[in-house]
Design a binder for these strands. Structure first.
Lengths: 132, 132
DNA sequence: AAGTACCCGATAATGATTATTATTAAGGTA
DNA sequence: TACCTTAATAATAATCATTATCGGGTACTT
């Protein structure tokens, strides 16, 4: 009897390109934007494929997903960090901020398990603030 | 041609009921849930009206909107506070936490204007943690 | 009462995302 | 090599929350 062997996941051209596009994007693109950029490399790629691959890459720890205005955006930076969102121009910027140990401890004392923390700062970026 | 000026917005039965429903809800209901509860008081109310009124009440400062999993939820508590979201049962709980003055100051020094801050803690609530 | 702003319920439209389906292509096997 | 099995793809349809539209009515103002 043969042992059932798990097949290797293929590393397809599509997956490599989608990953590379996110790697090269520092503007927190949407899936649609990733699709447009990927199409420049591989014009036949489909939007559904881009969505599927992005959703694979996140649990693999290769990219991060952040949600702004009910829309998914993708970030090549996987280290723990947070975001500032400009309400006027829509720019999303990385923000380093310490997390509140006190609040976490208090929740954990209640028996809660904290797995993820997300801080979002909304307002006007320097350029938009200067225009006002 | 004369323009008629309207001074006060009408406080309709629909608006009063939607507001009351949110006031009485401590579970951060969705628009759909608010609609269901409002229907118990006024069976003819429509979902579109509930959406419209909820969207009015937010800038009026009567209720707060929070977004969880790309869905709007409504909160009678308008004071500054944050949320814990259980990844298993979906429960949303209010969390009091100090905001990071240092991070805000650093952003403001760069010329940014911060208008809103949102902290979200994701994980397992006490009950769901105990079940694991 | 007349004129008009405002609000309503019903319904259609939208936008982002997910599911489905038929096709293609890769890897292993004989 | 040819064949078989299965995964990955492109194209398309379906879904879900939300927003826009429309026609009719209500109430405010003069």
């Amino acid at each position: 009897m043969k042992t059932i062997e798990r097949k290797k996941k293929r590393n397809t051209k599509q997956k490599a390109i989608v990953f590379q596009v996110v790697q090269d994007s520092h503007d927190h693109p949407t899936a649609e934007t990733v699709y447009e950029r990927a199409k420049r490399e591989l014009p036949t790629i489909s939007l559904g494929t881009v969505y599927r691959i992005l959703k694979e890459l996140v649990p693999e720890g290769k990219i991060r997903e952040i949600i702004v205005n009910k829309q998914s955006r993708f970030d090549p930076k996987t280290e723990f960090h947070h975001h500032f969102i400009c309400k006027k121009c829509g720019k999303i910027e990385d923000v380093k901020t310490p997390l509140c140990r006190y609040t976490c401890k208090k929740l954990e004392q209640k028996g809660y398990i904290i797995e993820e923390i997300e801080y979002k700062f909304y307002g006007l970026c320097d350029k938009c603030a200067a225009e006002n």
